[in-house]
Computed example of a mutant assay.
Amino acid sequence: MSPKFLRSELSRLPYPPAESDDPLFIQSIGRAMQVLSVFHQTDRPLSLQEISTLSGLGRSAVQRIIFTLRTMGYITRDPDDRGYVPGLRILDHSLDFQRLNPIVVTANPVLLELRRTIRERVDLSLFDDLRLVYASRLQSKREILSSTMIGHSVPTFCTSGGWAILAHLDDAEVDDILIRSTLTAVTPKTITNLDALKAKITETRANGFALALEQILAGEITIGAAILDSQRRPVAAIHVAGSLAEWTAKDFSRKFAPLIVQAAQTISRG
């Protein structure tokens, strides 16, 4: 996935609210999170003025917030002093999420065993409305930069994991997500037509897994299966990726789909 497309998708993410009428809401914390969130949509250090513009907060308030966050290690200056970037302390919270999220904790041993068995890339992504966020990525012999990054996100509408999740929602929920999606093509093969997408979701419901060809990366084939919570609602997905240079869709599905579905069911029960 191109950096340009990734920035475009990240720029659409909802920022945490900086203001609320709820008496329990601490506005100063909301504004601090608003400042941290502006880095979602950039691939370079940001100046004080740029952070102010992107966050929608006044320059004076942003200056105080940055000073506080920098003192605590959550924001730092770029090594070349070109602007501000997230600080090392952010990674402490990423680790906490990995250690304490029940889906990730339950899934990790299952994913490791699946990776040993199939020897292709195995991913775990968490459902976040219009996007899936990667929480675990176990590599194959084919490595690319975007496939190594935990926290990287992809659109729900054009991924095997997204289709698998949508297949477990009712038609009204599916329509709502598809209508609110930008439906921007990532590759020449990305499906963006609403009727065609609904047909893929219907196919996924019938098969029990989703098969996607070159939706995010050219030459890639993926199979996705949904992970369900105790209410039988989709909350995450396993997807396995291979190369069309090595696999036909028929052979890839026949060999791996049962294993992926079983792994997803094991995690769901957990």
Rank of each mutant, 00 (worst) to 15 (best):
R131D: 03
S37R: 09
I75Y: 13
S181D: 04
S125L: 02
V122F: 06
S253D: 07
A226I: 00
H239C: 06
D43C: 02
T148G: 10
P45S: 11
F97R: 11
V240K: 00
L166M: 08
A249Y: 06
Q262D: 12
A199I: 10
I66E: 06
S181H: 02
T71R: 12
R233K: 03
V38G: 04
T184S: 05
A135V: 09
N207L: 10
V261I: 14
Q139C: 04
P3V: 00
S146C: 05
T68V: 14
A61T: 06
F39S: 08
Y15C: 09
V62M: 05
V186M: 01
G224M: 00
T68Y: 15
A206Y: 14
T68Q: 13
I150A: 05
L6Q: 00
T187K: 07
L13T: 10
D80W: 14
L24C: 04
T202W: 12
S11E: 07
L213G: 08
E203T: 02
K189F: 09
V85W: 08
D128H: 03
S94A: 11
I51T: 02
K250H: 10
T71Q: 14
M72Y: 14
P79K: 14
T159W: 07
E19I: 13
I118K: 05
Q231V: 01
T248R: 02
F157H: 01
R12Q: 10
T159N: 03
L36V: 08
F97Y: 13
A263I: 07
Q231C: 00
L194E: 15
E120A: 01
Q262K: 15
V154L: 05
D170V: 03
I26N: 11
V110W: 00
S253H: 00
L88E: 13
I51D: 06
P234W: 01
S268F: 03
W163S: 07
L124Q: 09
P79L: 14
T202M: 13
I90L: 09
N193Y: 03
L100W: 12
D123W: 02
A185N: 09
T222Y: 04
F157C: 03
L112G: 14
L48I: 04
N101W: 11
L46N: 04
C158H: 08
L24Y: 12
L46K: 11
T148I: 03
Y84R: 13
I201T: 07
L217P: 01
V62D: 05
L213I: 09
Y84W: 15
K4L: 11
I65V: 12
L183Y: 13
G56C: 04
L54I: 06
L244K: 10
I165D: 02
D80L: 13
A237S: 05
I90E: 13
Q265H: 14
T117R: 14
D22H: 10
L124P: 02
R232V: 06
A210V: 04
I75V: 15
L194Q: 12
I191K: 08
H168S: 10
V35G: 15
R89A: 15
T192F: 08
T204D: 12
R31I: 06
R59K: 10
Q139W: 10
E113S: 15
L166W: 00
A226P: 01
I118Q: 07
V85Q: 09
L46A: 05
R44F: 07
G219V: 05
S47K: 09
L228W: 02
K141P: 00
L91N: 05
T71S: 11
T190W: 13
T117C: 13
G161S: 04
G208T: 03
T182V: 01
L178N: 09
L211D: 01
L211H: 05
L69S: 02
R59T: 00
